[in-house]
């Protein structure tokens, strides 16, 4: 409109004035629309500018999508230079570009978080495996200690067993000893018993011979004389009737007394033959006594001749 004023030519002023007025009115109208449009443009621009600034200033997201932010900036810059008709189009584009920048920055942020979580995942597994290894090591150590303790226990038990066995052996040795001692004691007892038995027997013998030993204080039985009639005449054979007398003599001799047999011949006839007969007669008596059970050693025989007393046999006793 200023241009119009300055450029107005001189002449045709009326026509010009009306034309000028029309033109001015039209221009004003257009500018009014433009102003309204410009104001709306400014609102859109301010809104988008603010949104983009907010993203750029964001401490976390601001640096994560530089390319997308640059594209949004470019789109926003175009918004200021474009005409009204294209305005909506560029607003749409700029809105999208800013949203893309936001979404991209957020996605990058999440992807970084994902990386950290991945690393954390690995670290958890590592920690777990390390802990497992540690547990295995501890378990191993425990088992080692246990087996050690077990070995010690085994040793101890073995030692105990050894000791027990030794003791058993000792005990059995002692038992042997005791057995031996017992055997010895038994032997001793046997011996003593035998001794006692012997003593008893002796006592019994003594008792049995008690009748004689007592009369021992009293003299042994006196000599028994068997007369000439005890024998067949001129012979050395005892008559059967004399047998009873022989038994009496044997009883008188007892268990231990020594028996002397003296056979006396008479002086009729040859002395020599008499002596021989006397001896034979003595031996016959001895034989008869031995036949009753008296030991031959306990009997001694003597033949004597030339006696006035006639033919006879004297049996006498003596101690041993």
């Amino acid at each position: 409109m200023i241009i119009g004023k300055w450029d107005l030519p001189f002449g045709n002023q009326k026509k010009l004035r009306s034309a000028k007025f029309r033109f001015t009115a039209l221009t004003l109208l257009l500018l009014g629309f433009a102003g309204i449009a410009q104001a709306k443009d400014d609102l859109d621009y301010d809104r988008l500018r603010g949104s983009l600034n907010q993203l750029r200033d964001d401490r976390v997201l601001g640096a994560l999508a530089p390319a997308e932010i640059a594209l949004a900036e470019q789109s926003l810059a175009l918004l200021t230079t474009t005409g009204r008709k294209e305005h909506e189009h560029f607003v749409y584009l700029t809105e999208r570009r800013i949203d893309i920048a936001y979404a991209t920055a957020q996605a990058v942020e999440r992807e970084r978080a994902l990386q950290l979580l991945d690393r954390e995942h690995d670290q958890i597994l590592i920690a777990a495996s390390r802990r497992d290894a540690e547990q295995a090591r501890l378990e191993l150590e425990k088992q080692r200690i246990q087996s050690l303790a077990q070995a010690e226990e085994t040793d101890r038990l073995r030692a105990e067993a050894d000791a027990a066995r030794a003791q058993t052996e000792q005990t059995s040795a002692q038992a042997d000893t005791a057995k031996k001692q017992a055997a010895q004691a038994r032997k001793l007892a046997d011996a003593q018993a035998r001794e006692a038995e012997l003593a008893r027997k002796e006592a019994a013998l003594l008792a049995a011979s008690g009748a004689k030993p007592l009369p021992k204080a009293a003299p042994l039985p006196g000599p028994v004389t068997l007369g000439d009639n005890a024998f067949a005449p001129g012979q050395a054979v005892l008559k059967p009737a004399v047998q009873a007398q022989v038994s009496k003599i044997a009883a008188a001799a007892g268990a231990s007394a020594h028996v002397h047999i003296e056979a006396h011949a008479d002086d009729a006839g040859s002395a020599k033959a008499n002596l021989a007969l006397a001896k034979e007669r003595a031996q016959a008596v001895r034989d008869a006594l031995v036949a009753t059970g008296i030991a031959a050693g306990r009997v001694s025989v003597v033949g004597r001749g030339g006696q006035k007393a006639g033919r006879h046999v004297v049996v006498s006793f003596s101690e041993r």
Partner: peptide, 22 residues
């Protein structure tokens, strides 16, 4: 506009996927 809208869909898909994975 289709390009911008498609790019936004792509960026939002990437974000959604990343969020889900996280």
């Amino acid at each position: 506009e289709t390009q911008a809208a498609a790019d936004l869909a792509l960026a939002r898909a990437r974000l959604g996927k990343a969020r889900e994975k996280v």
